[in-house]
């Protein structure tokens, strides 16, 4: 036994293992890149089904916990957009309040997620999961399926503690905002579904990701003033008192996923996908902040829709709006 013998004991990792791990890491990369700033909602749809990951959907700190998760039984059926001022977004991000903080650290995992599964194809994933999965039947240009990542279902329960929310309101100088009484100690149960994420590529630059899952379901004790909670969340997002009150009263908080987008950098419009109402959010190539010839500032688009109780998000870079919508329309 010598130095050479010992060095020769190194082995290359199994190619299937290396490929699967790379697929999972790409999911992290895509989620980080496509979800930056103006697309915070992505965490709810894209990240691991773990409650820890669900907590990331509260990256706009108190907002999600109050305006969105606070429902006696919440299922996503439709979407509403709220424009967020970049400066407010920075303030909220720097506050670093997440789900655990809001719950005073009282987050209990009722069901830990199993490790994510990586597949080379949707057929492989469908076979392994034992259920049919939807796919686009029409792909633009040279686009082809790349890989599939499945994150597993999980369940968590948190106990509400309003103290950090009040502190956050104070930090945001929102001293006129009042939280409904009786929130402290309330139990919220979050059911995060299994989430299937299929990646498509065309060459090295164009990519698309189709996410499909059953709606997350959030259970709350009955009797909470949902619109009042929503109004608090909207104030945290930067809406004026009158705007927040008007919008909070107009939203059905039991079925509407509020999508914060960056004011001035994104455009959005209601669309119909497969005959269902959906939401198209775009960051045009020439949006403020991009300079001529600058790389990494390509047009990005995402379309969200629900159908037969399933939530879909199709996001892409370097695809035209019509291509993205056609691809979404073809999902079967």
């Amino acid at each position: 036994m010598d130095d050479r013998f010992l060095h020769e004991q190194r082995r290359e990792p199994d190619p299937a293992f290396a490929r699967d791990l790379r697929t999972r890491l790409r999911a992290i990369e895509d989620t980080q890149a496509m979800g930056r700033r103006g697309f915070r909602w992505r965490a709810l749809l894209l990240t691991s089904a773990a409650a820890a990951a669900f907590a990331a959907s509260f990256a706009l700190p108190a907002v999600r916990a109050t305006a969105q998760a606070a429902l006696d039984l919440f299922r996503v059926q439709e979407f509403a957009v709220v424009q967020v001022d970049p400066e407010r977004l920075e303030k909220l991000a720097s506050a670093k309040v997440d789900l655990g903080t809001l719950a005073g650290g009282k987050v209990e995992m009722l069901q830990e997620p199993l490790p994510p599964l990586a597949f080379a194809s949707l057929d492989d994933a469908s076979t392994m999961l034992g259920e049919p999965l939807e796919r686009p039947t029409l792909l633009p240009r040279d686009m082809k399926p790349d890989s599939v990542l499945v994150t597993r279902e999980s369940r968590a329960r948190l106990t509400v503690d309003t103290r950090p929310v009040r502190e956050l309101l104070d930090a945001m100088d929102l001293r006129d905002v009042r939280l409904p009484d009786g929130l402290d100690g309330q139990k919220i149960t979050m059911n995060m579904p299994q989430l299937v994420r299929q990646r498509f590529v065309a060459g090295e630059k164009t990519r698309a990701i189709l996410v499909q899952c059953e709606s997350p379901v959030v259970e709350l004790p009955p009797g909470l003033e949902l619109s009042a909670l929503g109004e608090v969340g909207l104030r945290l997002l930067g809406l004026s008192p009158s705007e927040a009150k008007r919008l909070a009263g107009a939203i059905d908080w039991r079925s509407t996923l509020v999508v914060p987008v960056l004011a001035g950098a994104t455009e959005y419009q209601a669309v119909r996908v497969q005959g269902r109402p959906g939401l198209l959010v775009e960051r045009p190539k020439d949006a403020p902040g991009a300079t001529a010839g600058e790389s990494g500032m390509h047009a990005g688009r995402v379309v969200l829709w629900t159908n037969h109780g399933r939530v879909h998000a199709l996001m892409a870079e370097r695809l035209e709006r019509s291509e993205l919508l056609s691809m979404a329309e073809s999902v079967r």
Binding site: E29, A33, R36, R37, P86, E90, A287, P288, S295, G296
Partner: peptide, 17 residues
């Protein structure tokens, strides 16, 4: 500051990938 924020939005640099 807001430009710094915007520059990170949708940033997917192929070279970096």
């Amino acid at each position: 500051m807001d430009e710094a924020v915007l520059r990170q939005t949708w940033a997917l640099d192929p070279a970096r990938d």
